[in-house]
């Protein structure tokens, strides 16, 4: 498993922002960790290949086309005339305008106060299930997210996996840690869900990402906070299968449903 801080040093090295001391520290680490050295070489090679993409010249007529397409005249903001504005406000109707402005401001302020202090009602129901761990079901206020959470407490893997539904987006949020490296497999019904992507939180890294036949597999290399995102094809409750493996052997298995 590669330490988070050295992953950040790798990326900073690629960006050329490390100090000499940080570069030396990274080199020392890479010299001791073949897996980290390999990852760094792969990342460096991949980003170096991007230099193959040279800038492409736009067509010669593009600037002319743009200028020709500009609207004939745009009324830009006029220079602010303070004296004219003052003359306009210092009038027989000054008191009425002042009162109206004050009322308007007060109303807007009250609206914002109500909007930002409102809290939805929350109730929490929890139950022990026959599945491994505890399932807590939380209902947020109406119109907001629904969450199902599984707590994983095992000698080889622990943390949480949460299922979160917002609109037509379903997110599986992981926060996991383990004493040894592991691979994670997320199974889903491709007829009900469309895989959108994996988002890694806290500057973490995943590798070996593969998507085949309704199963996503990848290897978290550092911090285990990441989100697997799907788009729902149907309104029916979705089911997600979770498996953790080490060197091909199953160390954890579960299923969570909406």
């Amino acid at each position: 498993m590669i330490d988070d801080k050295y992953l950040q040093l790798m990326h900073a090295e690629i960006d050329g922002v490390n100090t000499p001391q940080q570069s030396a520290k990274l080199r020392e680490y890479l010299g001791q960790r073949p897996e980290a050295q390999r990852l760094y070489e792969e990342l460096t090679a991949a980003t170096a290949l991007l230099q193959e993409l040279k800038p492409v010249e736009p067509p010669p007529h593009l600037q002319h086309a743009i200028m020709h397409a500009l609207p004939p005249r745009v009324q830009f903001q006029q220079h602010f005339d303070f004296k004219a504005w003052l003359r306009k406000w210092v009038s027989p109707a000054f008191e009425l305008k002042t009162a109206l402005a004050f009322s308007g401001g007060l109303t807007i302020g009250l609206v914002f106060l109500i909007l930002f202090t409102h809290r939805g009602l929350e109730t929490e129901v929890s139950e022990n299930s026959k599945l491994y761990g505890t399932i807590g079901l939380q209902h947020a206020g109406s119109g907001t997210q629904q969450t199902v959470r599984v707590v994983i407490q095992d000698a080889e893997l622990h943390g949480t996996a949460s299922l979160q539904h917002t609109g037509n987006q379903l997110s599986v949020i992981f926060s996991l840690s383990a004493p040894q490296p592991f691979d994670l497999s997320v199974a889903y019904d491709a007829a009900a869900l469309s895989f959108t992507g994996v988002d890694v939180l806290e500057a973490g890294v995943i590798s070996n990402l593969s998507v085949q036949n309704g199963t996503i597999t990848f290897s978290p290399l550092s911090s285990k906070a990441f989100v697997v995102v799907f788009a729902k094809r149907t309104p029916a409750p979705a089911k997600i299968g979770l498996r953790a493996l080490r060197a091909g052997s199953l160390i954890y298995e579960n299923q969570i449903s909406e």
């Binding site: 950040q8 090679a45 991949a46």
Partner: peptide, 16 residues
């Protein structure tokens, strides 16, 4: 930074 690191990782996987 976080997403860029992930993006590089994704690009590496595709290129691999």
């Amino acid at each position: 930074k976080s997403r860029l690191f992930t993006a590089r990782q994704m690009l590496k996987e595709v290129l691999l």
